[in-house]
């Protein structure tokens, strides 16, 4: 048990550097692609800007998930969701409505832990099908990856805006 946890934690610490480089490369590549597409349709209306920022966000998440690779549950789930969202956008909307309804029902004082666990499950991609222990592990990895993602994006934005 202890050995497994130490390996996972060391894996996280080891993988952050390579992850950062991989993510930066992929993200820059996708940014360049988005630029190319923008040249064809250069408009500055609000909707266009919203769409583009969403595309950049999706590119960031997908490049992060690809940089991590399929060994973590959350990256697999994220890639799966992104693919599904691209192909079936209407299905996702329906699912969203259902989850909103179910959120309002369970609220009791005894199940505070379960409530928070469910919140975490919603935040971490693919967390709905996870064991609680597994969920905590994946959350740790997800947090480190999000941190690196934010740092890299900040650096790119700073570089571009100079």
């Amino acid at each position: 048990m202890r050995t497994s946890t130490t390996t996972t934690s060391s894996g996280i610490t080891l993988s952050t550097k390579s992850c950062r480089i991989k993510f930066a490369r992929r993200f820059l590549r996708s940014l360049a692609e988005i630029k190319k597409q923008k040249r064809s349709s250069a408009s500055s209306s609000e909707e266009e800007i919203c769409k583009r920022s969403k595309r950049i966000k999706m590119a960031a998440y997908s490049s992060m998930a690809r940089a991590v690779g399929p060994r973590m549950n959350w990256s697999r789930a994220l890639l799966f969701k992104l693919r599904n969202r691209v192909s079936y956008p209407r299905l996702v909307k329906k699912k969203k409505r259902v989850t909103v309804r179910s959120n309002k029902v369970p609220r009791s004082k005894s199940s505070v832990h379960i409530d928070r666990g469910n919140k975490l499950r919603k935040l971490v991609p693919g967390g709905k099908s996870m064991d609680y222990i597994c969920l905590l592990e994946e959350t740790a990895h997800y947090i480190t990856c999000l941190n690196t993602q934010v740092k890299v994006m900040q650096a790119i934005a700073d570089n571009l805006s100079k």
């Binding site: 920022s53 993602q149 934005a157 805006s161």
Partner: peptide, 22 residues
């Protein structure tokens, strides 16, 4: 986690503006 995700959203907006401006 929520703050990090919000940050990602904010940064993507910023990047979009920078990208489009360039």
């Amino acid at each position: 986690i929520q703050s990090l995700q919000r940050q990602v959203e904010f940064l993507s907006l910023k990047l979009e503006s920078v990208n489009s401006r360039v």
